[in-house]
Design a protein around this nucleic acid. Sequence first.
DNA 1: CTAAATAGGTCAGTATTACTGACCTTGTCA
DNA 2: TGACAAGGTCAGTAATACTGACCTATTTAG
Lengths: 206, 206
Amino acid sequence: MLIQMQRRGQNLRASLPFRGRFPWLSMVYSAAANAEDMSVMVETRSPANPLFLRDEELRQGIELMFYAYRDFTFESDQQLKRYQLGRAHHRALYFIGRHPGQTVGHLLSILKVTKQSISRVLKDLLEQQYVEQKSGPRDRRERRLWLTEKGQVLERELTDRQSQRFARAYRETGADAVEGFRKVMLGLLDPAERIEVDKRVRGAGR
Amino acid sequence: MLIQMQRRGQNLRASLPFRGRFPWLSMVYSAAANAEDMSVMVETRSPANPLFLRDEELRQGIELMFYAYRDFTFESDQQLKRYQLGRAHHRALYFIGRHPGQTVGHLLSILKVTKQSISRVLKDLLEQQYVEQKSGPRDRRERRLWLTEKGQVLERELTDRQSQRFARAYRETGADAVEGFRKVMLGLLDPAERIEVDKRVRGAGR
DNA sequence: CTAAATAGGTCAGTATTACTGACCTTGTCA
DNA sequence: TGACAAGGTCAGTAATACTGACCTATTTAG
C-alpha cells in the first residue's frame, strides 16, 4: 500500500485519483487529563504512529454521525411532506408528546431555538389542531402544551419509522452494543446538558 | 438552581418543571425478532404494559440522536459563522478532505443532495480557494476535487471541535462502548448503504 | 403597592439550505 | 452519429432559523 505524505497539497493530485490517504493527524486526544493522555499529544507525522489510528477513529465517529443522522431523518421527512409539515413540526410534536403539559419555555430549552422560530411551528400545529394549550394552573403566564388525539396519531405515525429503525439496529447488535451506544451518545453532549438529558431520556415525561 | 442557557442569544430560563421519574428498568432483549417487531406496532399507553419498556427504549434512542446531533454540530457552526460559511460548506470540505480527488458525483452520492444544492457551496469554496478541481484523467467530464492548503487548514479547524468531542466521549466510555456505538450507528443506516459506508468509514479515501 | 422581571407572542427583515424543472455544454462510447 | 453521462446554470419556491424591537399579561420582590 502506498501512503503518500502530503506536505504541499499540490503533488498528490494528478497521479493518484482516489488513493490519497491523509496522514494529517496530530492531536486531539484531549486536553491532557493524565500522563497517558499527554503522550498522545506529542507532535507526530509518521503514518506508522498509532496516533493515526486515533485521528482515524475519531473521524469514523464523525462520519457515522453524519450518515446515521442522514438516514435516520429521511423517512419521516418524506412522510411529513404529505402533511405539508417540516422536520421542525415533527420535533415539536415529538417533544410535546414526550412531555405532556410542558411549557413553551421548556420546549425551547430542549430544542434550543428561538421563540420566534418555534412560534411559526406551534401556530401551524395549533391551527391544525394537532396540539392544544392551556395556561398553567399556578402561573397563568405559562402556556402548557398537549397533543390532541389527532396529534398523537400523527406523532406516532412519524415516530414509528424512526422507532422501527432503532428496533432493527438494536436487534441486530444486542444489549451490550446498545449500552455502549447510549454511553457514547451521552458522552457527546455538552457536559452541562448531560444530567438533564439523561434524566429526560430515562424518565419519560412528567 | 438556575441554569443559564443563552446559547442562542435568547434568554431561556431553565424552568425545569418536569423532573418526574419513570423507573429505568433493565432492558429485555429477546432474540426473537418477530416478537420484538410487534412491540413497536402495539399500542403501549399503559405503564404497566411490558411493551412500554420497548417503546420507551426506542424513544430513548431517538432522543439521544437528537440531543447528540444538536450539540455535535453547534460548535463548528459557530466557527463557520466567522468565515461566513454554513454547515453545508463544512460537510463539503470534510468529505473532499476525506476522499481527495473524488468526483462531484461521488460527493453528491455521499451528501445526498441535488447538484444545484452543492453547486452554490462548491462555487463559494472554489472562489475562496479552499478547494480546487481538475478534470478526470480518463474521463474528462469529471471534475475531481481537492482541498488546497488553505482548505486543509480550515477543515481541520472546523473538524477539530468535533473530533475533540468524540475524543472526550470515547475516553470517558471506553473501547467496548465505542464498539457498541459503532455497531448501532451502522445498524441505523439504510441497509443498502451499509456496506458502502462501512468501507468508506474504515478505509479513509479507499 | 409599585416596579421589575418573567412567560410568551408578534412584526419585520435577512440568511442558509435545499428543492423542482428546464435547459446547456462537454465528453464518452456503442 | 446519436444516445447518454458528468456537470453546470437559471429561475422560482419553501423551510428553517436568526437578530432586533416591541407588546401584553402576570408574578414577585422590595
